[in-house]
Design a binder for these strands. Structure first.
Length: 577
RNA sequence: GCGCCCGUAGCUCAGUAGGAUAGAGCACCGGAUUCCUAAUCCGGGGGUCGCAGGUUCGAAUCCUGCCGGGCGCGCCA
C-alpha cells in the first residue's frame, strides 16, 4: 500500500529537478507514514518540511509544487496540504480492494517479500553452554532469535540459523568430572560433592547412562585434596581423574555427557518450535585448524603482540577497554580466540551479515569481536549484536527466585509445561529485546479474559467458526462474487479492518528491519481488536448474497493475515477454542 | 571508576530513520447478547514522557550534564 503513495511522490519529484537534487539523500518512502487521524487521510508525507532547508523554499510551496505534478493514478481520492506542510494522501476504496484481493490470492505467502540474494545472513542465537538444561533466560533468546529469523525470511532475506556449541575448554572437563563423581556415588562411594562441580539432577541421569566399560573406580580420588579455592580443587580433581582413568576414557565420559545434554537442548528447542540449520562445534575450530588460521591472520595484521609469555590482541585499537589475551602463557587458546576464529569462519563461509543474539551480559564482546573481524580484513559492521535483556518470572505478584537451590522452576521445559508453548513464545517477544522482561505466569497461564494470546487466537477461531456456521446453514461462500462485491464493504468497522489489514506488510518490514518482533505482536492485537469489533457490530451471514460474500471475503482475508502473523511468532492458529 | 541497556498512566509496556491532539493491556467505574463462540464489544476517568539545559519550524524520540534501576569490566567459558 505504502508503495502506491511512494510511487506517486517519486514520480512528482522526478519532474522537479531543483527538488530532486535536494532530496538525493532522502529515500522518499522514509517520509511517508500512516496517519493517526483519519481526517488526515491514509498516509502523510513530511517531505516538504524536510526539503525546505536544502531546497531553500518554504515547506508549503514545496508541497504545492509536488502536488501539482502528481498524476491521476486512479487509486488516489485526493491529496491535501495541511499544517506546516504535510502532504496528506487519501486513498480510494479500490486500493484497499486490491490489497484484499492480494491477500486472498496469496494466502500463506501473503506478506512475504520477494526473495533477494543479499545480504546473506547468519543468525546465531541461544548458544547456551552444553553443561545443563536451558533455563527461562535462554527461552527468551530462543523465542526472540527464532522470530527475528522468521521476520527476516518474510522480508526476503536468505537466513541460516546456527547454534554455537561451547563444547571445548575447562567447563567440559568439569562436566566430565561431575558425571564421573555421580557415577562413583551410584556405586555407594560417599563423599562431599565439590562446590565447583555441576550438581543438577541431570548429571546423575547422565552418570547412569555412561558406558561403564573401561571406566575404573578411583577410590582415592578425593583423598588429601589441597586447601584452596573451589577452582583449585576442581582442577586437581580433573587432573587426577584424567590420569587415573586415562585421557581417552575421561574424554569419552566428557563427550557422552556433552552429547546427552546437547541432544536434550535440541529436543527442548524443537518442541518449542525453534530449529537450527547447523550446530556448530567449538571443538571443530581446533580440530579443523580454524583457530590457527585466524591467529595467522591476526599476526599478519600486526595487531597482536607478546607480553608475559602470552599473545595479546590489540583490542584497544578497536574501542575495547583493554587488550585481550588470545594465547595464554601455558599455550592454551582463550575463549576469545575461539570466538574470533568462529566469526572469521562465518564470514569466510560467505555470509555477509553476522547477527548474534546474545544475553545482555555479553555486551563487552561486541567491540573486541568486531575488532577481530576488522583486523582480519572484514568490517566490524558485518557483525550485528542484538542484546536481549534478562527475564524475571512473577507468580501471584511475587518475583520467583531463580536460584539453583530453590525448588521453584527455572528451566525452559518447566515453563513450557506450565504455560504452554504458544503463550511462552508470545510473551517472550511481546517486549522490546532491550527491555527487561517481567514474565507474569498467572497472565500467561490464564485461559480467559486477560490473556492477549488467546485474544488473537480467538479471532482466528471465530472466523473459522463463521465458516462452519455457513456450512451448517447449507450456504457457500462464493469467492469471486465476494471479490466483485467489495464495494459493499462501506461500514466504518469494515474500513477500519481493511486499513489494518493493509498495514501488514509494512509491519513485517518494520519489525524485520528493527529486529523488533513486538511490532508484530502489537499489530496482531490491533487486528484482532478490529475483527472482534466488526463481529459485534455486524452479522456476516446475511441474506443479501453479495453483501454476505463480500463480508466473508473480508474476514477470510483477516484469517489469513492472523495465521501468517502468528506463524512468524511461532504461535498456533487454532480452528476452534 | 569506566562501558552498555533502561526510566512514558496506579501496574506491565508500545510509541516507525524527529511530525499534527502521547497510545494499548491490566486494574477501576458504567453499559451491550431473542442473532455467526461473551476467551467478545462499546463508553469513561487517569500523564510535569526521571530532572535540567541545548539543537529546530517541530523533541517521548537527537546532543550534554545530573538522578535512579539492571548488567558488564579474568592468561574463566
Amino acid at each position: 500500500m505504502k508503495s502506491i503513495v511512494a510511487d506517486i511522490l517519486e514520480t512528482a519529484l522526478a519532474q522537479l529537478p531543483e527538488l530532486a537534487e535536494a532530496a538525493a539523500d532522502l529515500p522518499v518512502a522514509a517520509t511517508i507514514e500512516r496517519t493517526r487521524d483519519a481526517s488526515h487521510g491514509d498516509f502523510a508525507s513530511n517531505i516538504a518540511m524536510r526539503l525546505a532547508k536544502p531546497a531553500r523554499m518554504s515547506p508549503r510551496d514545496i508541497a504545492a509544487r509536488l502536488v501539482e505534478h502528481m498524476g491521476d493514478s486512479g487509486e488516489l481520492d485526493k491529496v491535501e496540504i495541511a499544517g506546516p506542510g504535510f502532504i496528506n494522501f487519501h486513498l480510494g476504496a479500490s486500493a484497499y480492494h486490491g490489497e484484499l484481493n492480494s491477500i486472498l490470492e496469496q494466502g500463506d505467502e501473503y506478506g512475504r517479500q520477494s526473495q533477494r540474494e543479499q545480504p546473506r545472513i547468519l543468525l546465531e542465537f541461544v548458544s547456551a553452554n552444553p553443561t545443563g538444561p536451558l533455563h527461562v533466560g535462554h527461552g527468551r533468546l530462543a523465542a526472540y532469535g527464532a522470530t527475528v529469523g522468521n521476520l527476516l525470511e518474510a522480508a526476503g532475506y536468505p537466513v541460516e540459523r546456527e547454534y554455537y556449541v561451547n563444547d571445548a575448554g575447562r567447563q567440559m572437563d568439569i562436566l566430565g568430572l561431575s558425571v564421573y563423581l555421580r557415577w562413583l556415588e551410584a556405586l555407594d562411594r560417599s563423599f562431599d560433592f565439590p562446590e565447583g562441580g555441576y550438581r543438577g539432577d541431570y548429571i546423575r541421569d547422565i552418570a547412569g547412562e555412561i558406558e561403564a566399560e573401561g571406566v575404573a573406580v578411583l577410590d582415592d580420588l578425593l583423598d588429601d585434596l589441597p586447601d584452596g579455592d573451589r577452582d583449585m580443587v576442581i582442577d586437581e580433581l580433573i587432573g587426577r581423574a584424567r590420569r587415573g582413568l586415562g585421557a581417552e576414557t575421561f574424554a569419552l565420559i566428557r563427550q557422552q555427557a556433552l552429547e546427552s545434554i546437547r541432544a536434550d537442548i535440541e529436543e527442548d528447542l524443537a518442541e518449542f518450535g525453534v530449529t537450527f540449520d547447523r550446530w556448530y562445534s567449538e571443538q571443530s575450530l581446533t580440530t579443523e585448524g580454524r583457530i590457527d588460521a585466524a591467529l595467522t591472520e591476526l599476526e599478519k595484521s600486526g595487531k597482536v603482540y607478546e607480553k608475559d609469555g602470552a599473545m595479546w590482541f590489540r583490542a584497544t585499537d578497536f574501542g575495547d577497554e583493554k587488550d585481550r589475551v588470545v594465547v595464554r602463557a601455558n599455550g592454551a587458546r582463550t575463549y576469545f580466540a575461539s570466538d574470533i576464529a568462529y566469526h572469521y569462519d562465518k564470514r569466510e563461509r560467505g555470509f555477509d551479515l553476522l547477527i548474534d543474539v546474545l544475553g545482555a551480559d555479553h555486551h563487552g564482546y561486541i567491540s573486541r569481536v568486531g575488532g577481530g573481524l576488522t583486523a582480519m580484513g572484514y568490517a566490524a559492521e558485518d557483525l550485528e549484536v542484538d542484546l536481549v535483556q534478562f527475564v524475571a518470572l512473577f507468580r501471584g505478584g511475587e518475583k520467583v527466585q531463580m536460584s539453583t537451590r530453590s525448588g521453584e522452576f527455572e528451566t525452559l521445559r518447566q515453563l513450557r509445561a506450565e504455560v504452554g508453548n504458544d503463550a511462552a513464545r508470545f510473551f517472550y517477544v511481546s517486549r522490546s529485546n532491550d527491555q527487561h522482561l517481567d514474565f507474569d505466569l498467572d497472565v500467561a497461564k490464564s485461559e480467559s479474559n486477560d490473556n492477549p494470546v488467546y485474544y488473537i487466537q480467538y479471532a482466528h477461531a471465530r472466523i473459522a467458526s463463521v465458516f462452519r456456521q455457513l456450512a451448517e446453514r447449507s450456504l457457500e461462500w462464493d469467492d469471486s462474487h465476494g471479490r466483485a462485491s467489495m464495494a459493499r464493504l462501506d461500514q466504518p468497522q469494515e474500513k477500519a479492518l481493511m486499513t489494518t489489514l493493509s498495514r501488514y506488510s509494512e509491519v513485517i518490514n518494520l519489525a524485520a528491519a528493527n529486529r523488533a518482533p513486538q511490532h508484530l505482536v502489537h499489530y496482531l492485537r490491533d487486528l484482532a481488536n478490529d475483527f472482534h469489533t466488526y463481529y459485534n457490530a455486524h452479522a456476516f451471514i446475511v441474506d443479501d448474497a453479495a453483501l454476505r460474500d463480500a463480508r466473508l471475503a473480508l474476514i477470510s482475508a483477516t484469517r489469513i493475515v492472523i495465521a501468517n502473523g502468528l506463524a512468524i511468532l511461532g504461535v498456533s492458529a487454532p480452528e476452534t477454542m
